[in-house]
Design a protein around this nucleic acid. Structure first.
Lengths: 339, 339
DNA sequence: CTGTTAGCGCGTTCAA
DNA sequence: TTGAACGCGCTAACAG
């Protein structure tokens, strides 16, 4: 009903003082008497004053807002990253705008335009899978908006990356399976163009090598990030009669399809399937309580990336020489809660 | 490097024309020659002009932005609602700001303050579980910001609600199990203070009644929305030796715990467990491919709510007399992809 | 400690 | 069709 039109001028007029004093009082400036401050705050309250951040931000030329762009908020990994981002940001007095590119370059470009037009102070982004050229990202940087990339690497001079050590994750997972006595370890991978899968695969091979286990071509199952691909691939594997006693999956989505397929065929899943990736969380806990996972530290990554970005915004020292922060993933051996 | 400071005045100066003409050209006003328009757009491009939405919005007193507040973006249901919201909003030329209350009243209040201060044109909100009094929400409405509530009902005169017919969902689920031949149907429920669980429970009882099956107290398992509660409760059930041949779960989180517990104990899960709720999606597809679910139409709900809100913003006719939009949930019988 | 003045960048009058 | 001038609401600078 009562559409809010109360400005600092209105409340200044009501008290017969100057609007700057009101502004100062509302900003809790020390340069105003406690008495008048109280009076101002009281009438502001009474008149239903609501400050206009648009005007404030325009004047100050800061928004205290950071933009966050992720492929999909529904992915468990990304939502845990966002958790970390929000926590760190709020503590530092920043608001957060969350956007999703849905893995589409066009949407990513639009989002960045909007964020820039809204004058966010900085951007945290995990680029879409379609993003091959970085023009729009460089554009942002050139407009003076600090950028921090997380999870998915992007090579732009003067920007920071926060990444996970995928090689180590792959190595640790494989090493773990070998230590458990597995010899025939199938590797579910993703699109081999993506660094993340290349690196996990390298880790896998390296662990095999270290343990004197030869790598076999038919153990590498690459596919897109689709459940159906996992189903199709595991079927092929079974049809060919390939023997295996463990799976190290770096592609959680396809892994879900594969597991689903194994269940339907009532084939026992190897006791100790290592799955890399956070989005499998609900599955891993339900399917097999003793499942071992390589957890990507989303929450911590969010915190670290935000920290870096805010330091950038405040022009404090960010990363010194190195421009990339590498985080460890954790191998988590899940215990059954029963035994 | 080149911090963007190009304003319409700069480009006006460069072309020796007035900034209003530039403004008009950039807004594609018909009141400017095509020739000068082209010239202006060209130099704007060259000078790397980036319009300042803060200033623009301040002047126009509209932001073309709607705020969305959900308890958690990671919940599958909510992220699908957001999908629907974004799609509808973008088509209508609105941007979307996504926020999560984490089920905390304090955060919800803060978020709404920030959204109001940023002059969003409207707000879509699913209130937190802690939200019992609606003062902050009424405050928003009184400031002239249209509100639409979705999924969780909120009774404020002059606002719209978009809800799911939980009674019908509960009824349909139970009816389905009965038709399958189940007689002893356990009901997993949530906090009984919440309308949603009350209504699903009512639906459950109604279906039993219609089929002449007596309701048994020990079949109602209420708990909080925590996995551990599900585990604890199913254990109690088993300890007491209660016989059941089906579960209708309205509390997906606890249901996950329960299923997990059943698996660990190698107890066969009833073939046709009906689970209400979207967030169980990954589990339901993996655990048991023939699982029947009551799908909450998150995407459609997001679209409907946004549609309503935008109509409100534009002061068009929203809902006529009735202020609540009830959507049907769909019972989906999942078929094994094998057979 | 408070008031005056100016201007952030833009869009919209009103004239010309 | 274009220009001049004003003001959206707020804050920073400089007086006093």
């Amino acid at each position: 009903m009562n559409i809010n039109k109360v400005t600092i001028h209105d409340i200044a007029k009501a008290l017969d003082i100057n609007s700057s004093t009101v502004s100062r009082a509302l900003n809790d400036s020390p340069r105003v008497t406690k008495k008048t401050k109280d009076k101002i705050l009281k009438t502001a309250q009474e008149m239903g004053y609501q400050r206009n951040l648009l005007a404030s931000n325009l004047r100050k030329n800061v928004t205290n807002t950071i933009g966050v762009v992720v492929p999909r908020i529904s992915r468990h990994f990304f939502s845990s990253v966002i958790q970390g981002i929000e926590e760190t940001a709020y503590q530092a007095g920043f608001s957060v705008i969350i956007c999703q590119s849905l893995e589409q370059l066009e949407r990513e470009k639009n989002i960045l335009e909007t964020l820039a037009a809204n004058r966010v102070d900085g951007v945290l982004i995990s680029i879409s899978m379609e993003t091959m050229d970085y023009e729009h990202l460089e554009g942002l940087k050139n407009r003076g908006i600090p950028l921090v990339f997380f999870d998915r690497h992007c090579n732009i001079p003067g920007t920071n990356n926060v990444l996970i050590d995928d090689f180590k994750g792959g190595y640790d997972a494989t090493q773990h399976l070998i230590k458990k006595g597995c010899k025939n370890i199938v590797h579910f991978s993703g699109p081999q163009e993506l660094e993340i899968y290349k690196n996990r695969f390298r880790g896998y091979k390296e662990a095999l090598k270290k343990n004197g286990i030869p790598f076999r071509d038919e153990y590498l199952i690459s596919s897109r990030l689709m459940e159906q691909d996992g189903i199709d691939n595991i079927k092929k594997l079974l049809d060919k009669g390939v023997v295996f006693d463990a799976i190290f999956s770096a592609n959680d989505v396809a892994a879900i399809g594969a597991i689903k397929c194994l269940i339907e065929n009532e084939i026992k899943i190897p006791d100790d399937v290592a799955i890399v990736g956070f989005s499998n969380e609900p599955i891993s806990t339900v399917i097999n309580p003793t499942l071992t996972t390589i957890n990507q530290p989303g929450f911590e990554m969010g915190k670290a990336a935000t920290d870096l970005l805010i330091r950038n915004i405040k022009n404090e020292t960010g990363l010194l020489q190195e421009e990339t922060l590498i985080m460890d993933s954790n191998l988590i051996e899940r215990q059954s809660s029963q035994k």
